[in-house]
Simulated scan of single mutants.
Amino acid sequence: MDSIFSPPGFDWTKDKARELRQVIGAKKIGFWRAANLLCRMYGYAGWNELKELRSLDPPFPTEWDDQLDEYHLTERYDRFIDELNAELDIDDEQSQAILRKVNVSSRNVSYASTSSVREAVAVSDVDDFADRLAGILAALAPQIAAARSGGRQAIRSAYANRR
């Protein structure tokens, strides 16, 4: 999933940043560092980018936890863990303990089942890619044929006709 996972709003983000700071320890992390960490966990560069994108008209869309399948929910939690690990120099187990305490998501992920979910989705993703690739190749077939018969000039005309 290439999209950004949005937190519900500014107040929620500030509240969760305070909780995150409390769980990690106020001496280890300040409020704005915790807020920026939380924003990075959701895929933003930091608080300023969250504020900018959420202030757009219409606002940047939110992907709610209940809209995510198990694979993408696990992907979201992996991002959370990666950001916590990098910021705090801790391991996955410590990050998972922090996430359980702060509850940054309305759904919980069972880490014991993540590898089987990933394997099942990976097969589905490969099948989906193969289907899409067939369509892409069918669309490119005229350009490929033109390239074989007429060289670069034929390719340029094919692209010009496509626009």
Score class of each variant (00 low, 15 high):
Asp2Phe: 05
Ser3His: 14
Ser6Thr: 10
Phe10Ile: 10
Asp11Val: 02
Asp11Gln: 15
Thr13Cys: 04
Lys14Gln: 14
Lys14Trp: 10
Glu19Val: 07
Leu20Trp: 05
Arg21Ile: 00
Gln22Ile: 11
Lys28Met: 02
Ile29Ala: 01
Ile29Arg: 00
Gly30Met: 10
Phe31Gln: 08
Ala34Trp: 01
Ala34Met: 02
Ala35Pro: 14
Asn36Cys: 00
Asn36Leu: 00
Cys39Glu: 11
Arg40Thr: 01
Gly43Leu: 01
Tyr44Ser: 04
Ala45Gly: 13
Trp47Asp: 05
Trp47His: 08
Lys51Met: 03
Glu52Asn: 11
Leu53Val: 00
Leu56Val: 07
Asp57Ile: 11
Pro58Glu: 04
Phe60Leu: 10
Asp65Gly: 15
Asp65Ala: 11
Gln67Pro: 05
Leu68Arg: 12
Asp69Ala: 06
Leu73Gly: 02
Thr74Ser: 14
Thr74His: 09
Tyr77His: 05
Phe80Pro: 01
Ile81Met: 04
Asp82Arg: 15
Glu83Ser: 05
Asn85Phe: 03
Ala86Arg: 13
Ala86Glu: 13
Glu87Thr: 14
Leu88Gly: 09
Ile90Phe: 03
Ile90Val: 02
Asp91Ile: 10
Ser95Met: 05
Asn103Trp: 09
Ser106Gln: 04
Arg107Met: 15
Arg107Leu: 12
Asn108Trp: 04
Asn108Tyr: 07
Asn108Gln: 11
Ser110Pro: 10
Tyr111Ile: 05
Ala112Trp: 13
Ser113Val: 15
Thr114Gly: 03
Ser115His: 11
Arg118Glu: 12
Glu119Asn: 11
Ala122Gly: 08
Ala130Lys: 12
Leu133Glu: 06
Ala134Cys: 12
Gly135Trp: 03
Ile136His: 13
Ala138Glu: 15
Ala139Pro: 00
Ala139Leu: 06
Ile144Asp: 04
Ala146Ser: 01
Ser149Trp: 08
Arg152Thr: 15
Ala158Trp: 12
Ala158Tyr: 09
Asn161Lys: 13
Asn161Met: 12
